[in-house]
Design a protein around this nucleic acid. Structure first.
Length: 544
DNA sequence: TCCCCTATTGGTACTTTCTT
DNA sequence: AAGAAAGTACCAATAGGGGA
């Protein structure tokens, strides 16, 4: 009884909180954009953007790949659509050089419509957080569909890209958006948004979307309506799609990688016109833009981060994306529902040096996600966590080095992949958290707990704090000691070999920890007491 | 105009996860 | 089994501003 009352009051307070958040956003949104009139944004390329904002702001620039220099941003020519009707009278088009069209519909929504729609979306409680490339996406969103039903377990129409699987909720649950969907469908000449209606919430200027094409489900029409936007406006960046087959050396440039832009001709040959292009669109609240299927073949688009509105509620941006293409059905949704905190701007990550991290215990096994959540190792895709200024707080060891004795080992890193931060830690005498991973082949390889979920991903064992003893730069035959403040002299591409030694600051001695690791590997259970250690420990430690 | 300092940006490497 | 990725953030190179 008591419990249910508590639950009820909790629900109520959640509701109140939600309406509080919603009201605040709506209030902010309805407020006049005071900043516009006076703020002057002069970009490094010398263009004064504030003049553009009252009109349709589209600009483009080009560069020759051979020279690498970008030309100035210039106003993009906007043409009237070929088909004129009452519905498209105000619209304008950009015809992209490599193929495809963007149609802009200025002022599609009134201020009142925007406010009520914002409220409907934010109070729907439907936003979800999805993960991609091992990280939460820097935005939250959800999918609606006119054919979706209320049964949560039943398969529903959906949308999938990368590892994100979105299962739609019924569109009729949000009546205002449902109405809008029909209006914009007419305007764009689309009978049904058969992939779905996708409201997206960028919580602040740090939230963003990387370069991508909407081409995973045969999209033929992608229409986005901007419901709310920070002022100054954020830019939508459009660039040619990178191709897969690339050899820069053949083409006489030094750079490696697959970024060079090439085009496919009609007969399948790959040609290269030697030119990069970029296009920017700065559309405001109430405006809409529509990308066609052909554009998705040749271009990617992105919403780059905006330092201006980072960490601030004023940086909120809400858009609704309507997609038509190939309808698919999904049984599962890969996202998690957002609580109220998840709708606030995400806080910056902070550094923690040393052992004082809650739930981090020497010898224990963790997943990569756990490490990031604990702030014990912050980087998904590099083994060194840290930066050149602050130093390195943690590393993961996943490459075998013959000299690893557990107490001491060496670790190689170029300055560009974290060697710089390790040099800082060496100079400051900071301890580094060391995690050995299951990717190792030597006897100190981390081994997943038997009881844990079956997964192909690596696991990480916390082996305690280590101090960096020395650093040498290897230059062919020469070896250069860089332990003392010479980091600026180092060739960024040469490897620096660091020697690390397990620190006496650790709560557990090296030998005791090593014994525990051995026993836990043998018994697949946790060693919790000294008694366990004495009882189970073999006389001679042999690890394999 | 040159120099020096700071801010911005473009290029890049990185791992896990998932698909083909 | 191979390969690509709707991401992250480091860091060098570059641009821009201010002072001499």
């Amino acid at each position: 009884m008591r419990q249910s009352t508590a639950a009820a009051s909790k629900l109520k307070s959640n509701d109140q909180q939600l309406s509080c958040v919603t009201n605040r956003i709506v209030a902010w949104y309805q407020g006049s954009p005071k900043k516009t009139a006076n703020s002057k944004i002069v970009r490094s390329n010398g263009i004064d953007r504030s003049k553009d904002e009252s009109e349709l702001p589209a600009s483009s620039r080009w560069r020759k790949i051979s020279t690498g220099k970008w030309g100035p941003w210039q106003r993009t020519e906007l043409t009237n659509p070929r088909t004129r009707s009452a519905l498209t009278q105000k619209s304008r088009q950009i015809h992209l050089p490599r193929g495809g069209t963007v149609t802009i519909y200025p002022g599609l929504l009134s201020k009142t419509q925007r406010a009520t729609l914002s409220q409907e979306l934010l109070s729907s409680n439907l936003f979800r957080q999805y993960e991609i490339q091992g990280m939460p996406e820097p935005r939250v969103h959800f999918l609606l569909h006119e054919q979706a039903t209320d049964e949560p377990e039943a398969p529903q129409p959906g949308y999938r890209y990368g590892s994100v699987r979105m299962k739609a909720c019924p569109l009729r649950g949000l009546p205002k958006l449902c109405r809008l969907s029909k209006i914009v469908g007419k305007r764009a000449g689309v009978e049904s948004w058969n992939i779905g209606v996708n409201p997206v919430f960028y919580r602040d200027g740090k939230d963003r979307i990387g370069a991508h094409a909407d081409d995973d489900q045969g999209e033929s029409c992608i229409l986005s309506v901007i419901v709310a936007s920070p002022i100054p406006l954020r830019r939508l960046l459009i660039q040619p799609k990178p191709t897969k087959i690339v050899d820069r050396t053949v083409l006489g440039t030094k750079q490696k990688g697959n970024k060079r832009l090439k085009l496919k001709t009609g007969n399948g040959d790959i040609v290269d016109d030697g030119v990069d292009e970029q296009h920017e669109l700065r559309l405001g609240p109430g405006d809409a833009y529509c990308m066609d299927g052909e554009m998705q073949e040749h271009y990617v688009h992105s919403l780059p981060p905006d330092e201006h509105s980072k960490g601030s509620v004023e940086g909120r941006r809400i858009i609704v994306v309507f997609r038509s293409g190939t309808q698919k059905v999904f049984k599962k949704d890969s996202g998690k529902p957002c609580n109220l905190a998840a709708l606030e701007p995400r806080p910056d990550l902070c550094f923690t040096f040393g052992n004082e991290i809650k739930d981090l215990r020497e010898g224990d096994i963790y997943g990569g996600r756990q490490l990031r959540a604990m702030n014990a190792h912050r980087s998904t895709q590099r083994s060194v966590s840290g930066n050149k200024v602050m130093g390195c707080d943690a590393i993961t060891v996943s490459r075998d080095r013959e000299d690893d004795t557990f107490v001491r080992f060496s670790f190689a890193a170029e300055t560009r992949v974290g060697g710089g931060s390790m040099l800082t830690s060496l100079q400051k005498g900071y301890p580094v958290r060391v995690f050995r991973t299951s990717a190792l082949h030597n006897k100190y390889k981390a081994v997943a707990k038997k009881s844990g979920p079956k997964s192909k991903s690596n696991v990480y064992r916390y082996d305690g704090l280590y101090h960096i003893e020395s650093a040498v730069e290897e230059l062919g035959d020469k070896v250069n000691d860089v332990s003392l403040g010479l980091s600026n002299m180092i060739n960024r591409k040469s490897e620096i070999i660091f020697r690390l030694c397990r620190s006496s600051e650790n709560s557990v001695s090296s030998m005791r920890l090593l014994r525990r690791i051995v026993i836990e590997r043998m018994t697949h259970s946790k060693v919790t007491s000294n008694n366990d250690l004495r009882k189970n420990c073999p006389k001679k430690i042999i690890v394999n």
